[in-house]
Design a binder for these strands. Sequence first.
DNA 1: TATTGACCAGGAAACAATTATGGTCATTCA
DNA 2: TGAATGACCATAATTGTTTCCTGGTCAATA
Lengths: 190, 190
Amino acid sequence: MDRRQEILEAAAKSFSLFGYKATTMDQVAKIANVGKGTIYTFFANKEELFNAIVLQMVEEMRVASDAATVEGASFEQNAHARLMQMLKFRETHQLYAKLVDEGKELRTPAVIEVLAEIENEIVSYIKTKIERAIDKGELKPCDSKLVAYLLFKSYMALVVDWGKTHEDEELSEERIAGLLRSTIFTSLLA
Amino acid sequence: MDRRQEILEAAAKSFSLFGYKATTMDQVAKIANVGKGTIYTFFANKEELFNAIVLQMVEEMRVASDAATVEGASFEQNAHARLMQMLKFRETHQLYAKLVDEGKELRTPAVIEVLAEIENEIVSYIKTKIERAIDKGELKPCDSKLVAYLLFKSYMALVVDWGKTHEDEELSEERIAGLLRSTIFTSLLA
DNA sequence: TATTGACCAGGAAACAATTATGGTCATTCA
DNA sequence: TGAATGACCATAATTGTTTCCTGGTCAATA
């Protein structure tokens, strides 16, 4: 079997299980049944290997997000479904959840960097969806980059942050959807 | 002069200059020209003294925020002015800025707690302003608590967070105001 | 009765010693 | 002969130990 592929799988497993810092190259080599040196013929260093794994994950997330959309549904419905899907992915997917935790607790720089890149990726993704909806005439023209950013941050705030300070008062998905419909989404319509 | 007051002033000075952790009770006592024991006749412990100082600051912030409003101006104009004022206060006011930094860098629990309380206070403040505007018939009824939360988080995102990941592309206040007008504010109008 | 500062226990720094790890490269196969 | 390997190395992280600080107390004081 392809050595590069075995290494990728071993690394994905280890990063998911132990995070970035606690994953050692020896560990990855052993899981992949490969000499440590072999890893370095495919990846320049630990961080590049890590980036490759994260790239895979971002692709997975894009697929999951696309799968959450309904052909023919409104921009609001699909944007909501996509964002909720990505935030669910964020706390469900073993690797993503581990990285969020490691970024917050250990502050590993490589992890913080990668998390920022992922968020950028998500915002870009939303941005293209907004632009497509504008082209279709469903939304009126707007600063798509900023609106995408605002939408992402709003969902993060309501889905992720709110619970941290309002442990008692859980927000239902309907309440979130309702709030955003009556504020942001409606005003984006053409 | 009032001993309690001297202690408060000394503590305010020290917390502003050095933050929570790096302020020692001996330090405060010396600045206040008071025996250390005396502090404990007014405040149960360091944290209570700290809370008293922060309470003062929240009051200052409320005053500054009220001062930024214009009688007779629209809800949007005043809400924008208030929120910008409070976020400016956040990075301008020596104590607030120090606490934000200490919360992020040192993760001092007492500081993190207090920062959460301050944000709660700000959101409550916005909430009352929203409710007043609803009573006046300027805004249509809405989930004032959630809308206040969303507004605060949106401003934080655009004013504070954006710059961290888009160092090159500074957001002008006009662009921020424009974005929020065309999304959130307009849809709140009665 | 209000104030004080020497005093104390517990926890944080500072330092030293030990271990673990990312990355290299001479050697080894296939 | 060139891809694969793992012993090896410098450095970073961790652990253990000692010392120093600091929040809080309270007997002495004014």
